[in-house]
Amino acid sequence: MTEPSGDVLLEITDLSLEFRTYRGPIKALNGVSLNVRAGEIVGIVGESGCGKSVTMMAATRLLPKGAAHITGGGIRLFGSDPMKLSERELQHVRGRQVSTIFQEPMNALNPTRRIGEQIVEVIRRHQRLDNAAATSKASGLLRDMLISEPERIMQAYPFELSGGMRQRVLIAMAFSCEPRLIIADEPTTALDVTVQALILGLIKHKATSTGTAVVFISHDMAVVSQLCDRLYVLYAGRVAEAGTTASVLAAPAHPYTRALIRCLPGLAPPKQPLEQIPGTLPDLLDPPAGCLFRARCREADDRCVSVPPLAAIEPARRAACWRRIEETQAA
C-alpha cells in the first residue's frame, strides 16, 4: 500500500496550539501532523474535544482571534503559511480554494437573507459572473444536490427549509467556486439518520466527480469508514493512528482506535457485547505526562509514562503506541 500521489494541498506538521483562558492555557493540540493530497477523502476521527475541528479551523485561520495561540509546528495550505497571509489574501483562499461545511445547518445560513442571494454572493465574490449567470450557476449546483425546484428554494429564507435541505444548500455553496479542498466538519451530526446517508452520498459523489479533496471530520467511525480513503484518529490533541481506512479497520494498531471500533455495532466483532471506553479525555489544562491515553488503556505499562512518537509501523501506516512500535521493531 503506497501513499496517494496527488499534490499535497494541506500539510500540518507537529502543530501545537493552546487556548488562553483565565484558568490557564488549554493545550488543545499537542503536535498534530497530517496531510491531504489532491482528490482524496481523508477522515479525522475522535471523540468530542480531541482537536478535530480545531486543527482544521487553524488551517483556515477561522479560530477566534486572540483566544487561540499556535505554540509550535506549522501549517502549509496550498504551499503557503496561512498565518503569514494578510486578511485579504486569506479571503481569496477561503471559499475559492478551500471551503468549509459546518456541523449546524440550522444556524449556518443568514436568517434574514434569501437562499439564492447567499449562494450568488459567494459565487460573485470569487468568479467574474454577472448576476444572471451566477443565479443560473447556483440553481445548477442546487440541482446537483438533488433539489428538484432550485428556483423555489432560492427564493426561500432559511427558516422555511428543513435541516437536511439547509445542509444541501451549504454543500452547494461550499462547492460553488470549485475549491480544491473542502472541509466537512461533522456535516451530518445534527441531521436525522434518514437524511445522513443522502448527505454523505451527495458530498462523496460531488467530490469524486469534481476531483475535490475532502477532509471529513467525524466522531462516527462508521460514517468515516464508508466515505474516506485514509483516516487519522485523534486523541487529546495528538494523532493516535493514521493509515488507509481499510488497513486501520482491518487491524487497528492503537488501543484507542480498537476501542472506538469495538464501540460500534456493525464494525465491532459479531455476537459480542459492544464496548465502552472507560474514563474521559484527560484535562488539557493540566495534561498528564506520557501517553495521554494511558489512564484509559488496558495495555498500558511502564513504557507509557513517556510520550510515544507517531512511528511508521507498516508502509503508509503510523501509530503512536509503544507496544506497536516495539512489535514492529521486533519483526
Binding site: 483556515t60 477561522l62 486578511e87 486569506l90 479571503q91 481569496h92 483562499v93 477561503r94 471559499g95 475559492r96 471551503s99 468549509t100 459546518f102 449546524e104 444556524n107 449556518a108 445560513l109 443568514n110 436568517p111 454572493e121 459567494v122 465574490r125 470569487h126 451549504l170 455553496m173
Partner: peptide, 14 residues
Amino acid sequence: EDYVRTARANGLSR
C-alpha cells in the same frame, strides 16, 4: 453566530 462564520469561511470581505 454560525452564519457569520460561514460568511468568513466563504471568503467574503470584512
